[in-house]
């Protein structure tokens, strides 16, 4: 049946509790283990959780995922000035190391940017708030 992913229900959102400096995502398929709060942490060593969680030492961290840091400057160059970032509070404060990609929404002046996964590859979906803009681009 139709379902809206839980994080898009209209409750449980909080504004990003930290300064937005950038975000981690993985454009390639793999087991990218990351806490939601660490997605926004430039100091987060991408291999840390692999070690913490005791994953099979014979498998490389993330199994093919390539955690990639996108700085605020790069992000704004692509999508425009960031106006607000919302995160799903349950995932922010939990130790869920594989939160759904849609636990965050980034609103810029023109776009609503979400992080989604298709066939294991993460990418940013930037959709204009006003569909009329799409026809003029």
């Amino acid at each position: 049946m139709i379902d809206v992913l839980p994080s898009f229900k209209e409750k449980g959102w909080i504004k990003l509790p930290v300064e937005f400096k950038g975000i981690w995502y993985s454009p390639t398929y793999g087991g990218f283990s990351v806490y939601l709060r660490d997605r926004f942490n430039p100091e987060f060593p991408p291999d840390r959780l692999h070690e913490e969680l005791g994953h099979d030492a014979f498998l490389p961290p993330h199994y093919g995922a390539k955690p990639t840091w996108v700085s605020k400057e790069e992000f704004e160059k692509e999508f425009g000035k960031v106006e607000a970032i919302l995160v799903w509070s349950e995932d922010w404060y939990s130790n869920n190391h594989y939160p759904p990609t849609d636990s965050l929404i980034i609103y810029t002046e023109k776009y609503i940017v979400t992080l989604v996964e298709y066939d294991g590859n993460e990418s940013f979906y930037a959709v204009p708030r006003d569909w009329r803009l799409l026809l003029n681009e």
Binding site: I2, D3, V4, L5, F8, E10, K11, W13, I14, K15, A84, L86, P100, D102, I105, Y107, I112, T114, V116, E117, Y118, D119, Y125, V127, R129, W131
Partner: peptide, 30 residues
């Protein structure tokens, strides 16, 4: 586009599903 959402088709673990992104954020935050 609906009045409140932009609905896209996403994937969750190999299954397609709708993802409804709220167009406005102010009312989302308590």
């Amino acid at each position: 586009y609906t009045k409140r959402y932009v609905v896209i088709i996403g994937d969750y673990d190999g299954y397609e599903r709708f993802i409804a992104v709220p167009r406005y954020y102010k009312k989302l935050v308590r």
